[in-house]
Design a protein around this nucleic acid. Sequence first.
DNA 1: TGGCGAAGTTTGAACGGTCAGTCAAGCCGC
DNA 2: GCGGCTTGACTGACCGTTCAAACTTCGCCA
Lengths: 210, 210
Amino acid sequence: MATNRQTKDRHQEILDAAARVITERGLAETRISDVAEQAGVSPGLILYYFESKDRLLAEALTFANDQFYLRTSREIRRLPSAVDQLRRLIDLSVPGYLPEYERLDEWALWIEVWVRALRDKEMAKDREVLDERWRSQIADIIRNGRSSGEFGSTEDVDELALRLASLIDGLAIQVVMNDSKVTPERMHRACMHVAAHELGFEFAKSDVSP
Amino acid sequence: MATNRQTKDRHQEILDAAARVITERGLAETRISDVAEQAGVSPGLILYYFESKDRLLAEALTFANDQFYLRTSREIRRLPSAVDQLRRLIDLSVPGYLPEYERLDEWALWIEVWVRALRDKEMAKDREVLDERWRSQIADIIRNGRSSGEFGSTEDVDELALRLASLIDGLAIQVVMNDSKVTPERMHRACMHVAAHELGFEFAKSDVSP
DNA sequence: TGGCGAAGTTTGAACGGTCAGTCAAGCCGC
DNA sequence: GCGGCTTGACTGACCGTTCAAACTTCGCCA
């Protein structure tokens, strides 16, 4: 039976289409027919695969976030040094810093997640898990760098990770809004500066833009 | 003519009611009739004072933000030392840290501002101004503390302010979502820690909770 | 091999509920 | 009694959801 395979594809296709539409139009302005059009199917089919618009959009938000996380962590694992890993993580976190990456603006979706999580319990739970994973990703790098001797700091790893993650969040919001005073380059510099100082490493010349 | 005075009152009353409803139900779920009910008037009247629901909600968002800013800056100006000013600013910025303050959760409204600013040019401009003002508030305190000798750091004021403001933003998001791992106390500690280290001051015993 | 039918997909027209926005008619202060 | 304020019933559009009918796939049997 092709059923299972096909069904899975459709499911993903629709989630993907939904994420795209949300990024473009915003959660509030996303209609089922938009998603259908984006996915190249009829509106009825959307409701065949998802029990309601609400559920679809909620799933799409966490789905997109997951994609980003997987992509990022796969990339990072490849790098040998913790300093490079951290730099790469920051590169990937600054909206618009790496032009090559298809700008499916993850951060815009993140903000939609927050809004929804304020009132939707299910989403609130997902968000908490996702956020914890984000901090862990940073914490892991810190631990790597510490055991390899790259980082000198001896402070609590989780506190360091929380501060760095939150700083990135706060800056990314402004950058993704195209704030004329907070450019991608400035955000990148700020993040690297804090990372270097808090963790105790040198980042010399290689701080230059890509 | 009572017109002007009355009219102004109604305008504000409605904005205030709208801000309350948005905080409770979220921007997307706010109906004109909700605002009318909250304000104790008929739905028709809302559209007599505002040309559309959209405009009303946009105005309400910036209005609420303004209120918060004015309240905060008035309070801060009273304090004599820069360290106290900064501590107070942080107290006020941590969602739920000061129980006395009517929790008209400013941060929840902020997130709605961000979502809207992603697509609404008008709102994007307002947001940029508001954010700049927020950074300036911090920058001013830093300058105070520097000229009074309380702060030892000599780094660029705007960079320091950007980093501190962004850290607060990023942490506040998590706290306002009731993240079990990121409590108001933890956020407060993190902010004070960074402030003390980045600006070079001691904050000894007075770090205890209120 | 070929064709039958059942199960799973897909379509798009139709329905119904919900609101934003309108308006005609009252209200009240000056 | 004029002019701004206020009401709330009404309208029209919009969109989520339903559904019956068509289409596709594929296993099965002659």
